[in-house]
Amino acid sequence: MSTTASFVPVPFLPRARPPRPAPGPLLADPATLPPRDPHRGPWPGAEVVSGGVTLHVRETPGPQDTPAVYVHGLSGSATNWTDLAALLATRAAGTAVDLPGFGLSRPLASRDYSPAGHADALLCFLAGRGRPVHLLGNSFGGAVALSVAARRPELVRTLTLVSPAMPDLRPDPRRVSDPRLLLSLLPVIGRRARAALAAADPRARAEQVVRLCFGDPGIASEHRLAEAAAEFAARERLAWAREAAERTGKAMVAGWLRGESLWSVASRVQAPTLVVWGERDRLVAPRLAHRTAAAVPRSRLLVLPGVGHVAQIEAPDPVARAVAGMWDAVDAGTWEEPG
């Protein structure tokens, strides 16, 4: 019996390549966009039933070929898209939705405030309309839009993600401009923070949100602060408002803690995608911008210096140029990067 060990060749396995960085945006000529009116009020709103789901929406008139649908973030509403929808109205009619329990939308009968529940509601709403849309989402709304685009690609012509709420539990000192806003999202221990926020008057709450969400809070106009304060006051009169905000926030964080990941979802998106991030985002770390864009196969990335978490509110003009540039390039078949 031979004691010589036999040699079995092991195939060479090359090291996996890192994700390819996403190319930059394609910007539309600013002359093709209408001038922005800084004093414009919210677009008209109404309840709309589609796909068995009732949502309050704000409609922006415009060309109906491929309409745009705008999805707000946690504790936001359809009014978060007033300026951007106006700038894009010459290219597409717009529908800014209030997610169930937010803005003026009543909650679903199921009271399902999980990210999947919100995505189901939006998906049914879009499917009921029966045609593809340009889908835009900010923060939590970006995560919802990402899920919808991955699950039903035939409904989404293009996707725009403004600081989407990608999972991130690492501490970030920039998030502490008002710790109560962050603690309020946590189960159990956030109860006291939520109570403190609810006790603040509407104007103070509007200023707190601006300090956290804007890269430069000083540019927030008195007109928009007054609008936000009035909206906070109106929501205080809605029986379901606090429940919707608390349960949605806790469900989002609980999903992160359970290891539910949007990264695999992002890899399944087929639509041309624009990822927009502010370099001063205090809520979703800017370090996730390149990773997010790399995770979505057909994406481009716009990073805005000096801008925070709600770029569509703080810097609507460059965001509009990038979104319009994507729409134009997709229509012309020139979105894909050469080579």
Rank of each mutant, 00 (worst) to 15 (best):
V284P: 09
A294R: 05
V303N: 15
V307F: 13
P318M: 03
H290K: 12
A315E: 08
P297H: 01
H309A: 12
A320S: 04
R282I: 08
L301P: 11
V307S: 13
L301D: 05
E314S: 01
R298K: 14
I313L: 14
V319H: 04
L304F: 11
V296R: 00
L283N: 07
V307Q: 14
A285H: 15
P297F: 01
G278Y: 02
V296F: 06
I313T: 08
D317P: 07
Q312Y: 02
W277L: 10
V275S: 05
A271P: 12
P318V: 00
Q312E: 05
Q312M: 10
G306L: 12
T273G: 12
P305L: 03
L283W: 09
A285V: 13
A295D: 03
G308P: 06
V310H: 07
V319M: 09
W277I: 05
A293F: 01
Q312P: 04
D317L: 13
P286Q: 03
P318D: 03
E279S: 06
R282S: 10
W277G: 06
V303S: 15
L283E: 06
R298A: 15
A289N: 08
R287L: 14
H309L: 12
V310N: 10
D317W: 11
V303C: 13
P305R: 02
S299L: 09
V310E: 05
A320F: 01
L304I: 14
G308W: 01
L304Q: 13
R291E: 09
R300E: 06
D317F: 10
E279P: 07
P297Y: 00
V275C: 11
P272E: 08
T292Y: 07
P286R: 02
P297M: 04
E314D: 05
G308Q: 03
P286D: 03
V307N: 12
R287D: 14
L283G: 08
R300I: 01
D281Y: 08
R298M: 15
P297V: 00
P286N: 03
H290C: 14
R298L: 13
L301S: 07
D281M: 06
